[in-house]
Amino acid sequence: MQPWSTDGGDTVYISETDGDRGSKGPFLVAYESRDTERRYGWFCANCESLDNAMDSMGRIKCNECGNFRKPTEWDAAHE
């Protein structure tokens, strides 16, 4: 686990093994503490940012570099 400081001055812990593939680089899981009980959010390894958004279908998009993860759930009604 790698410690990382947020813009607000808090420390979160980035997992180097738990994450998902993105279009430009992996999204790694960020936790509130080393014990990994509570997730903080996603860390974009491409631009080293915690500024990411996830929608209800599991898509993740980095607001800094545009790194993108495809949805984990799919609903054919959206075609």
Score class of each variant (00 low, 15 high):
Tyr40Pro: 00
Ala45Arg: 11
Trp42Ser: 01
Pro26Arg: 14
Ser15Met: 06
Gly22Tyr: 10
Glu64Val: 15
Tyr40Ala: 02
Thr6Phe: 04
Ala30Pro: 07
Lys24Glu: 08
Thr36Ala: 13
Cys44Pro: 02
Pro26Asp: 12
Phe27Ile: 08
Asp18Gly: 01
Asp18Pro: 00
Asp75Asn: 07
Val29Gln: 14
Thr11Tyr: 07
Arg38Met: 06
Gly25Trp: 08
Asn63Asp: 07
Asp7Thr: 08
Asp10Ser: 09
Cys62Gln: 09
Asp51Cys: 00
Gly8Asp: 15
Arg39Pro: 01
Trp42Ala: 01
Pro3Gln: 02
Pro26Ile: 05
Trp74Gln: 01
Glu64Thr: 12
Met1Ser: 15
Ala76Thr: 05
Trp74His: 08
Pro71Gly: 12
Ile60Val: 11
Pro3Lys: 03
Glu37Pro: 00
Pro71Asp: 13
Ala53Glu: 09
Cys65Lys: 07
Ser15Phe: 05
Ala53Trp: 11
Tyr40Thr: 01
Ser33Thr: 15
Gly25Thr: 08
Arg38Leu: 11
Glu73Met: 15
Gly66Asn: 01
Arg69Thr: 06
Glu73Tyr: 12
Thr72Met: 07
Arg21Cys: 01
Cys47Val: 04
Ile14Glu: 00
Gln2Lys: 15
Arg59Lys: 13
Phe43Gln: 05
Ser5His: 06
Pro26Met: 13
Trp42Leu: 00
His78Thr: 11
Phe43Ile: 10
Ser49Val: 08
Met54Ala: 09
Arg21Asp: 02
Val12Leu: 08
Asp75Thr: 01
Gly8Ala: 15
Asn63Thr: 02
Trp4Ser: 04
Gln2Tyr: 11
Thr72Val: 00
Ser49Ala: 10
Asp55Phe: 09
Met57Ala: 12
Ser5Glu: 11
Gly58Thr: 06
Thr17Gln: 04
Asp20Trp: 13
Asn46Cys: 03
Pro3Arg: 10
Asp75Lys: 03
Ala76His: 05
Cys44Ser: 14
Ser5Leu: 14
Met54His: 08
Tyr40Glu: 00
Glu37Ile: 07
Thr6Leu: 11
Ala77Gln: 08
Ala76Ile: 09
Glu48Ala: 15
Gly8Met: 10
Phe68Asn: 02
Ser5Pro: 00
Lys24Arg: 10
Gly9Leu: 06
Gly25Cys: 10
Glu79Asp: 08
Gly58Ile: 13
Ala77Ser: 06
Ser5Gly: 05
Asp51Thr: 00
Asp10Trp: 14
Trp42Lys: 02
Ile14Phe: 02
Met1His: 09
Ala53Thr: 06
Cys44Glu: 14
Ser33Gln: 14
Thr36Phe: 01
Asp18Ala: 12
Asp55Tyr: 11
Phe43Glu: 05
Asp35Cys: 09
Met57Trp: 09
Trp42Asn: 01
Gly22Trp: 06
Trp74Gly: 03
Glu48Ser: 15
His78Tyr: 07
Met54Cys: 12
Arg38Tyr: 14
Lys61Gly: 04
Asn52Val: 14
Arg39Ala: 07
Ser23Arg: 04
Thr6Arg: 05
Asn67Asp: 08
Met57Cys: 01
Trp4Gly: 01
